[in-house]
Amino acid sequence: MFEARGISKSFRVAGRDVPVLKDLHCKLPSRSVSLITGRSGEGKSTLLSLLAGLDFPDAGELLFQGDVMPSSAMGRMADWRRNRVGVLFQHFNLLPSWTILQNIEAALITGGMGCAERLLRSHDWLKRVGLDHRHDHLPSQLSVGQQQLAALARVMAAEPQVILADEPCADVDPETGEAIQRHLLEFVRAGNGTLVVASHGTFPQELADCVFQLSGHPIDS
């Protein structure tokens, strides 16, 4: 499970510090779906970013399965992320000049996986999200929904223990949104994974095992 102990984070904007998270404490259980909600600007994406090790907290500490995460060590956080965590963004963050297949390979290449296995797994996930026929296309040649499916395939192909998803269904059509939800829930229910979703309402609360409201306290668990 993830645990945040007294996490604070602020950003310097126009010469002054703007606090986003202040002395935050929370626990997000393993092998379940956790939903972080809150109004815009309350720090959902920032919290997710800290949990993924993409940024470091100004104060406090983060724990994963009881161990303190080396949040300020960028290299160690990259190792930790590579072995355990997949991050799904609202705006996909696909590598724009890499093809869809290469985007998926980019997540697998760092582990030293062989080329044949890499290709097999990448094509397998492209098939599952219905994009195998577009494997040699650039992200810009796909629709918004297809890009999010490609991003999902990239996360899934790496077989993480945890998926951190930031508004995964916000920009896609309902049908694609449902497909994404289905894959994510299957990851938790059938694959024993942990899913943490940050959303301000585009991800159904009833799918979550735990809901954490950033402005206050957990409203359901």
Binding site: M74, G75, A78, R81, N93, A106, T110
Partner: peptide
């Protein structure tokens, strides 16, 4: 931005 995405995917600063 591309480098940041690679880091998200687990590429270390050394890589």
């Amino acid at each position: 931005r591309e480098i940041a995405i690679l880091k998200v995917l687990g590429w270390t600063p050394g890589m």
